[in-house]
Design a protein around this nucleic acid. Structure first.
Lengths: 102, 102
DNA sequence: ACTGTATATGAGCATATGTTCATATACAGT
DNA sequence: ACTGTATATGAACATATGCTCATATACAGT
C-alpha cells in the first residue's frame, strides 16, 4: 500500500466551512445577500422587492446576523441592513458568474 | 422614493447557485471533496480515511455525481473517484483558507 | 458455477430547515 | 397616552436531509 502525504481538516474547520456554505445554500438567503451586495436595504424593502413576507425576511436576516454576514443600523422605525463579510459576497458572485455562463 | 438601477437573478440562476452551495454545505461532502482534491480515491478508501460507512460515502458520491462535481473510473471491483469541477474545488479551498486564518 | 469483494441503492427514521401565523417590542406622530 | 408602522421572535408544521440497515449488482478468482 502506497503512502502519501495528506493534509486534513480539523472538525472545527469543516464545521465552520459548512456553516458558511449553508448560509449561501438557500434561495431566499441568496436573493437577500445579492440584493444587499448592491445596496443598503430596510427589511420591508427586501420583502417587497423579493416578494417575501416580512417575517420570512426577518428570520433569514436573523440567521445571517448570527453568522455575521450582515449588519444593520436603525433609523427611526426602520432597520437598514448591509452585508458584513466582503469575502462571502465575493464567493457568492463567483458562483453566480460560474453558473450564469454555462 | 428614489429609483435605482438593479440587477436581478432569474429563478433558474438562484436555484442553480443554491444547488452548488448545498453540495458544499455538508461536513461529509466537504471532507470527501477535500480528499478528492488531493488524490483519486476508491470508495472504500474514502470510507476508511474519513471513518464513514461505505453506504454513507456511496450515497454522498451519488449526490455529488448528480451535480457533476465528481466523476469515476472503474478498475475491477473498485471505483476510483476524482473531482470534476475545478471551479467548485477552487471555491471550497477559498472558503477553507478564509475560515482557517481568522 | 460458486465465493468473496466492492459498490450502489431503496426504505425507514431522526433531525434540520424554512415558512407561516400570532404576538411582542420599540419608536414616531398626534 | 394612543395609534400606526416597522421589525423581531416563538410555536407549529411541512418538507428536506443524511444516516443506517438490508439488499442488489457486478466483477474477480477459483
Amino acid at each position: 500500500m502506497e503512502q502519501r502525504e495528506h493534509s486534513f481538516l480539523t472538525t472545527e474547520t469543516v464545521d465552520e466551512v459548512s456553516r458558511v456554505f449553508k448560509a449561501l445554500a438557500d434561495p431566499t438567503r441568496i436573493k437577500i445577500l445579492y440584493l444587499l451586495s448592491q445596496e443598503e436595504c430596510s427589511v420591508n424593502h427586501i420583502a417587497e422587492v423579493l416578494e417575501l413576507t416580512q417575517s420570512a425576511v426577518s428570520h433569514q436576516l436573523s440567521f445571517l446576523r448570527n453568522l455575521k454576514l450582515v449588519k444593520y443600523r436603525r433609523d427611526g422605525n426602520s432597520f437598514f441592513y448591509t452585508y458584513d463579510d466582503e469575502h462571502v459576497i465575493t464567493i457568492l458572485n463567483q458562483v453566480i458568474s460560474h453558473v450564469s455562463c454555462k
